[in-house]
Design a protein around this nucleic acid. Structure first.
Lengths: 326, 326
DNA sequence: TTGTAGGCGTTATCAC
DNA sequence: GTGATAACGCCTACAA
């Protein structure tokens, strides 16, 4: 900047003002400065800028367990894109940080507390989470996508997994299915636990805990395995609620292997309305997740905090999408 | 840091040395400093640190067109994870930047040139690319995953799409197929163009350009559409090379709709060995992409540059994976 | 409208 | 071993 000032025959202060469009600077000076910038090949040093301004214009997007997410859950892409759109609109830069190991969690935490970002969106965090701890401790403006328990200080945007699961299960019952099982997943997460709760509620007296088979992951593989087990426990099954579309896809595969037809012998419903849903044969009846909107809402939540406000959490509506699998 | 020094009764210089494990500092002083840090709740300011050290310990991962990539191409996840692993190993922080619009491209470019990262991995860039321009112009250590033409100054890690396509096509011919068509994609990218070239070479005299139908995208939808068109042009077709697994999945769907069996009536091969490959019915014969390894190689390429070396581009081997679709 | 100068929080180079 | 002190590159009163 010193060089630019010299070339343009003005002071560093004037260059700074010209660059930031702040304060007064004559047209003539501005022109000379622009010429000088091109000539010198000047690019602003943001470390210095951030240092004095105490602001980075960057917002973090922390995604846990990318193995599972990127490979199995297309919703993450929609959330990311939604967040990016809003953040970009506000002239900030979104930087996504992947946590793929305990070391990563530590490094990302220190990245966050190191002042590299002004705020953060946390996706798929668990209750006991090093990153969330760090965010809470330093008071970084943040928002969850999903709803980890025990973090009242950080607002979230979620869907009502429980009533969505209830609605979907009820619908399944209404089609006449009598022996309905559930392939549960991620019961240590609110999403997984709430889906099971909704399922249980909808079934009421007909609920049979023997017909719930759980797996830690929302994966296709989990669907194959848990469906096989469920069939072993109850060969006369005629309905299945899978905790996610990926799980449902695996379940359909297992059912086919076992010689059952879908939806003829057994009706299957999934959850998420992800790319899996239409790709399955038959296409899945499922719950639509408004992924992009969730991303947008989360971004808005942190932007609001940056503006000094204290927004409260958001629960977005979901729709049951009924297709051919049940 | 000033406060920490005061609480510990030492100078700022000593605190800095203690924090960075550089130079000498007595055990006693170290203990007092650690106590002071806890007491004051000190966290290092990286803007200041970066300013003086001219280094951020961060590396960018730029992904273009996330719509298409995250939603359709699971390989991107593997690349990301591979890159992340190597970068983390080297004690750097990976920050992924998504380019989802022209505005994004501009913003990401200025982020890169703003000194927020020490290097960058560029995924799925095109030849004429604002981000690559910026990287090249400021001489930021970088590497491509894939091989955009006309960027000799930036090393890349790629696979030999051409010979992979040739091998796969040859294999298809060996199964006895006589009327083989291709569903080409992304011909403006090296990957797309090379796959077509390999296909053409393998067929030699039997190549018939009428049997090549192209679409800009490597998508399921493109597969459905181009397959339908191809069938219209040549109802007697008995083999299809799809430019990607997603395209192949769409093609199988279209074939089924048209009353053809796979692999009975027509043999179908894909490319990528993505999640689609096993999810299809029947599972796809395809080319395996070593995604994680590509990510690792790309990271290594930029780390090497950071170490002052000048590594050259890498081409990774691929394998034909033969399954049931042909 | 422009120049001057202090300070942002660290690291690094010296003497001591 | 430790403590001054000078950068690092920029923004921003304040004075001119």
């Amino acid at each position: 900047m010193h060089d630019v000032a010299a070339h343009a025959g003005v002071s560093r202060g004037t260059v700074s003002r010209a660059l930031n469009g702040t304060g007064y600077v004559s047209a003539e000076a501005r022109a000379r400065i622009e010429a000088a910038i091109a000539e010198v090949g000047y690019v602003r040093n943001n470390a210095a800028r951030n240092l004095v301004m105490r602001k980075t214009w960057a917002i973090g997007f922390v995604v846990h367990e990318p193995h599972q997410l990127f490979l199995e859950d297309p919703n993450i892409g929609g959330i990311l894109l939604g967040t990016n759109a809003v953040v970009a609109e506000a002239d900030h830069q979104l930087v996504v940080l992947v946590v793929d190991s305990d070391d990563d969690a530590a490094r990302v935490s220190s990245y966050l507390r190191g002042g590299f970002v002004d705020g953060a969106v946390l996706v798929s965090a668990r209750s006991h989470d090093q990153v969330a701890d760090a965010v809470e401790q330093i008071g970084l403006p943040a928002a969850f996508v999903g709803h980890p328990e025990g973090r009242p200080s950080i607002p979230y945007v979620g869907i009502d997994n429980r009533s969505a699961a209830r609605a979907l299960t009820t619908r399944l019952v209404e089609t006449g299915r009598r022996r309905i099982g559930m392939l549960a997943s991620a019961l240590d997460r609110d999403s997984g636990a709430d889906r099971l709760a909704g399922f249980t509620e909808a079934l009421g007296d007909r609920f049979d805990e023997r017909l719930v088979v759980a797996d830690p992951l929302y994966s296709y593989r989990a669907g194959v395995d848990t469906m096989t087990e469920l069939l072993r426990r109850e060969p006369a099954l005629d309905g299945v609620f899978a905790a996610s579309d990926a799980v449902a896809a695996g379940a359909i595969e297992a059912l086919r292997t076992a010689g059952r037809t879908v939806p003829g012998d057994v009706g299957v419903v999934g959850f998420d309305d992800s790319a899996w849903a239409l790709r399955c044969n038959p296409p899945l009846s499922t719950v639509h997740q408004p992924a992009a909107e969730m991303g947008r809402a989360a971004a808005t939540l942190v932007l609001e905090q940056l503006a000094g406000r204290t927004p409260s959490s958001v629960t977005l509506p979901t729709d049951v999408v009924w297709r051919a699998s049940a």
